[in-house]
Design a protein around this nucleic acid. Sequence first.
DNA 1: CGCTGTTTTGACGTCCATCAAACACCGTGG
DNA 2: CCACGGTGTTTGATGGACGTCAAAACAGCG
Lengths: 229, 229
Amino acid sequence: MSLACATCPVRDRAACSVLSDEEREDLSQRGRHRTLEPGEVLFHAGEKVTACATLTSGALKVSTTDAEGRERILALVHPAGFVGEFFQPFDDHEVVALAPSEVCLFAGEDIETAMSEHPALGRALLRRTQEDLHASRTLLALTGKPDAQARVAGLILGFAQAASDSPCHPAQEFDLPLSRAECANMLGLTIETVSRKITALEKSGAIRRHGKRGIELVDPARLSLMAEV
Amino acid sequence: MSLACATCPVRDRAACSVLSDEEREDLSQRGRHRTLEPGEVLFHAGEKVTACATLTSGALKVSTTDAEGRERILALVHPAGFVGEFFQPFDDHEVVALAPSEVCLFAGEDIETAMSEHPALGRALLRRTQEDLHASRTLLALTGKPDAQARVAGLILGFAQAASDSPCHPAQEFDLPLSRAECANMLGLTIETVSRKITALEKSGAIRRHGKRGIELVDPARLSLMAEV
DNA sequence: CGCTGTTTTGACGTCCATCAAACACCGTGG
DNA sequence: CCACGGTGTTTGATGGACGTCAAAACAGCG
């Protein structure tokens, strides 16, 4: 196989998991594997190619840069997630690796033909896209909060959920996947405000910090309370 | 037919347009038509039913209400648009009519079986969902602008695009689909700020107001300039 | 040890939210 | 026809929260 599906860490969670082994083998012929270093760009903004990818390990961010050069993070992609828009030709979003990452890369047309040959794949991608849409709207609701404290608390809670394996309970200790600048870009705040609010959360006793990115949830209830102000 | 597909105003733009007449007839047996008054709720927040709908005329909003009772508008739905999430059971979003509207309503399971019988439908829905995702991220980028003036200008530009039939050129004169309060909820601002910024735009000569909701673009270039501050 | 990049903390100014009141619009009923 | 409330919009005055500028603390690394 051109792609190591057999040993793929997300083989039963990614969109392609709905395929049989033969179908998957068929699809893997058309794709290619790629490794990304932190900061490396998978899709550039404005490029017209219709391509897409499944993240097998690491983490990606989807971002856009406005006229004044401010970056805005629109979404994070976790392993088994999917990025790329193959219908409309060009996209002003950029996809960049946050951590050392590995992806399965496909041309848009290949995915389209694969979808017509294997209808289950289309349904799986639809489901993933609906989840992405839901996540995007959740982030929209979060960034709409008038209070910066609530936004930061909500972001940390979201990261805690994502870092946990169990779907409902947040992880009790984890690392922030983003730098302060990236947190700020995600929430529509400045670096300084994010930093201040995090220290305020620590002083209030809701969390504790370990190093620059380590977060420990000492009082999750208080944290979610602060997220709702 | 239980649904008047033959005279449907969006019969060649909605997701179901990819179906043949017979397939469409088949699907229409499972759906039902519904009329909505302004303010009437199509899907309540928190309800567990998995249903979905295509908007045939009018306009809808997708919104959520946080713990303090603040409404946040997450998306607008235009004719031929699609709403509803049929995979994950429950949703904290609410779908409400903004204007007198008509929808084709389907149970989630019916859509799922229809998709497996007619794979093209799944692809069409995937495409629509990707478009919704893109729109959501565009709104996310807009609401992230630090300056209120830029947000309001961007919103007006967006409405001008939506009101136009041609995809690239904005309409020169149109009505805001939202009240001031709804604009504010969409942008994460207050009613007063939205009002002030609109009058500021008028004083700057970028737009002119006709009545409460009528907008005339007298200087679109200046308007898009102000959207990028 | 000195360098560079990230994070934190401080002081200050500004923009927006808040509170409050005036206004426009539109029905209803006197 | 005009007074009357009701709703949505506009405008004004004020305070607070966040952005901005600046510098210090800190960690990583040659």
